[in-house]
Nucleic acid binder design. Structure first.
Length: 448
RNA sequence: UCCUGAGUAGCUCAGUUGGUUAGAGCAUCUGACUGUUAAUCAGAGGGUCGUAGGUUCAAGUCCUACCUCAGGAGCCA
């Protein structure tokens, strides 16, 4: 008796009659023998049809089935060394479910603009399929990591009344009679409230930045996970971050080998992602940059300037090219801490031993993928925080609830934010974050 | 916002110092083929050269403006 199964389960059905249902990925024929590659979302299976083994209608189906047409194939599963995946279906009959019109995405190469305009179809391609599988694994690993450690998920609002950090531009909208509202650019402030209530929390959801950034690392809508822990200091924050990254990478390595193979990822570079990671004080990172520039002659410097890389001055924040220089020195992610307070957000606590430095850290991914984590120990003193809000000319009343957290049982606490898309791009080894999210939103694209 | 580059067939591209009817591969259609792997082989159809002006006997090619897209900077995850 036949049985409906998924392609990922083929190996348990060798010698048995089964039915597969899906879409035609591609087909080949040499006259009396036909090969149809069936895609069902769990994998791809080659269906072999021989003229003298099937009825006329089944043999004629080959001509009718266009790329991405839906059909069901019934036959016997057999091992086949030459078949993609190692198994094929020796097909006895084919049932056509629907015939696809001429499909725009051919097996040949395409340009970015075309593929992005057909993102809803592009997702069916094996490479995009593999990326989404890895993304799913990363998200699952994130949840498991925190859940196993007793963190409570805290869903922060997406519609917010005010700017959390002030600097970034926000998407604005009208909110009934209440005036303007904004799409959240970080759940952190709410995470801090949650940490005071639940001890250990993580906020996980989409965030929005109306920055006009046009690089391979930016989206206007992206997902961020933000743990926040009461009684944790910067040291603990960094340790949590490195254990977290190790956990995610090792989970993908364990469960998504096939997908990494499709993506042609050099997994040896991922296998070495084990804590502890190198940690550099800002001054040490600055020294690397100083040596980098001083080792160059004038012509080499001019070349760097022409590509947009500005010479680093002590006290500056690091630009993307600076981060590439620093992370290029290491095979593991590197954490830089104790940034100058002047270039960091107002809610970050300063180090009492180095009052000009913030208890902040960034984690830079290897292979030039840039910043994947930004975190800090938060300012927990009421007067200090209030003073900083005033210094930045921000409306104190908007921060009233946030200041309350310092009025009622304030404790040291810390947390960080991890960009999901940058992390997935790095693990997959792909060029651009836009391929890591099903429907990317960039400065020039809101469709499909 | 700034810098750089690109828009030619459904898709990816070629198109020389401006010169007759703008080419190729893939996709589509027709035919051949019993183990193909982006199958192969033979043939056919398919074009407002991003838009608007301008120079010229003549513009895909030169000039101007604009539009769209891509890469980078800044900002950030």
């Amino acid at each position: 008796m036949r049985q409906d199964i998924y392609i990922e389960d083929l190996k348990s059905f060798v010698g048995k009659a089964v039915t597969l249902r899906g879409w035609l990925y591609t087909k080949r024929s040499s006259g009396k023998i036909q090969f149809l590659e069936l895609r069902d979302g769990t994998g791809i299976c080659q269906c072999v049809v021989m003229k003298n083994q099937v009825d006329e209608a089944t043999f004629a189906a080959y001509d009718k089935l266009t790329q991405e047409s839906a059909f069901a194939a019934t036959g016997v599963v057999q091992e086949a060394a030459k078949a993609p995946g190692g198994y094929e279906l020796f097909t006895k009959s084919i049932e056509i479910i629907s015939i696809a019109q001429e499909y725009p995405i051919s097996p040949k190469e395409h340009g970015v603009e075309f593929l992005m305009g057909n993102r809803h179809l592009w997702l069916r391609s094996s490479r995009q399929h593999a990326i989404q599988k890895v993304r799913h694994e990363v998200v699952h690993a994130i949840r498991d990591f925190f859940d196993e450690r007793g963190f409570n998920l805290l869903d922060a609002p997406i519609l917010t009344p005010n700017a959390a950090e002030g600097t970034s531009t926000l998407f604005e909208l009208d909110y009934f009679d209440e005036g303007k509202a904004y799409l959240t650019q970080s759940g952190q402030l709410y995470g801090e409230a949650g940490a005071m209530a639940l001890g250990k929390v993580y906020v996980f959801g989409p965030t929005f930045r109306a920055e006009k950034s046009k690089t391979r690392r930016h989206l206007t809508e992206f997902w961020m996970v933000e743990p926040e822990v009461a009684f944790m200091d910067l040291e603990g924050d960094m340790q949590l971050a490195e254990e977290f990254i190790e956990y995610i990478v090792q989970r993908v390595l364990k469960n998504r080998q096939n997908e990494l193979k499709v993506l042609e990822r050099d997994v040896s570079k991922l296998e070495r992602i084990k804590a502890p990671f190198p940690k550099l004080h800002y001054d040490e990172a600055a020294q690397i940059l100083k040596e980098y520039w001083s080792s160059m002659n004038e012509d080499e410097k001019k070349e760097r300037f022409a590509s947009g890389h500005k010479e680093f001055i002590y006290g500056d924040d690091f630009g993307a090219p600076d981060e590439a220089v620093i992370s290029g020195k290491f095979e593991k992610p590197v954490m830089v801490h104790h940034y100058p307070a002047a270039v960091k957000a107002l809610y970050m606590k300063r180090d009492p031993k180095e009052p000009d430095k913030a208890l902040a850290m960034d984690m830079l991914a290897p292979e030039g993928y840039g910043e994947i984590i930004g975190g800090s120990q938060r300012e927990d003193d009421y007067e200090t925080l209030l003073g900083r809000i005033k210094e930045h000319n921000l409306p104190v009343d908007a921060f009233e609830w946030y200041l309350d957290l310092r009025k009622y049982g304030s404790v040291p606490h810390a947390g960080f934010g991890l960009g999901v898309e940058r992390t997935v791009a790095w693990i997959c080894g792909i060029e651009h974050v836009r391929e890591t999210i099903p429907f990317p939103r960039t400065i020039s694209r809101i469709w499909p």
